[in-house]
């Protein structure tokens, strides 16, 4: 029990890194995803092909490979580009590279969600907006976007949780700078010290679960706010049937 609380204390600073990676990549990934989704729905063949290709490539390949690829690309550009500009320490730092790759990755997944929602926006609502004489941007802001985000929100919540889980592999691909270790690296170091897999990995898992639950709770609040025009859903009831 003592060891358990010890681990909880040791991993408390580590979870901050995972949360940082997720927080740093969510907003930018969100914005990029909106543009990519609109690009995929665009009738301009060039924009359409580019967005489609981007989404397909980043959804179709492992994040682990993407990390290695972008990091080694940045490394090979180091002498010719980053060093002369004097930003090599910044660009090659995992706290910059990590969120960068995560943004590129999550933008593709989120764009696919938004694209699906965009296609599910009721046609009648858009037609009504056009009949009112709204401009294209007005249509998007007043009619398409509110519908889209409501449709996409539950799936987007899942994507954010997956993104948070994906932060677990950041430091397997990028170098660990000094004491800046995330949950997985901390658990692995502790494991290599006393080989107690059950304790250390369970504590790390507990942290991941706890943060995931917090994400579900917060995004649930936002969803309630988005859905405030509808009558409230009945809450969950715990009524187990022991035998049926």
């Amino acid at each position: 029990m003592e060891a358990f609380f010890n681990d909880l204390a040791i991993m408390a600073p580590a979870v901050v890194f995972n949360i940082y990676f997720a927080l740093a990549s969510i907003p930018l990934g969100f914005v990029m995803a909106v543009f990519l989704a609109l690009g995929k729905a665009s009738s301009n063949p060039l924009i359409n092909a580019l967005s489609r290709g981007y989404i397909y490539a980043f959804r179709g390949s492992p994040l682990f490979i993407q990390f290695f690829m972008f990091y080694s690309l940045a490394l090979s550009l180091n002498l010719t580009v980053w060093r002369p500009l004097g930003i090599s320490g910044f660009v090659l730092h995992p706290l910059f590279m990590g969120p960068l790759v995560l943004v590129l990755n999550t933008a593709a997944y989120t764009a696919e969600i938004f694209y699906g929602a965009l296609r599910a926006v009721p046609r009648g609502a858009v037609e009504a907006a056009r009949a009112y004489g709204m401009s294209r941007s007005q249509q998007f802001r007043r009619v398409v976007w509110p519908n889209l985000i409501r449709l996409a929100w539950p799936a987007y919540t899942n994507e954010v949780v997956f993104l948070f889980h994906a932060t677990a592999i950041v430091y397997f691909a990028l170098p660990v700078v000094g004491p800046q270790a995330d949950l997985m690296i901390t658990a692995k170091t502790l494991f290599e010290r006393d080989f107690n897999a059950f304790l250390h990995f369970s504590v790390a898992a507990l942290y991941f679960l706890a943060v995931s639950l917090v994400v579900f709770f917060l995004f649930g609040l936002v969803y309630q706010r988005l859905m405030r025009h509808l009558p409230a859903q009945p809450g969950l009831r715990f009524a187990p049937k022991w035998l049926r």
Partner: peptide, 10 residues
Amino acid sequence: GVPDVLFFLF
């Protein structure tokens, strides 16, 4: 609810 890497290693 747990990252796949964690279980994959564990």
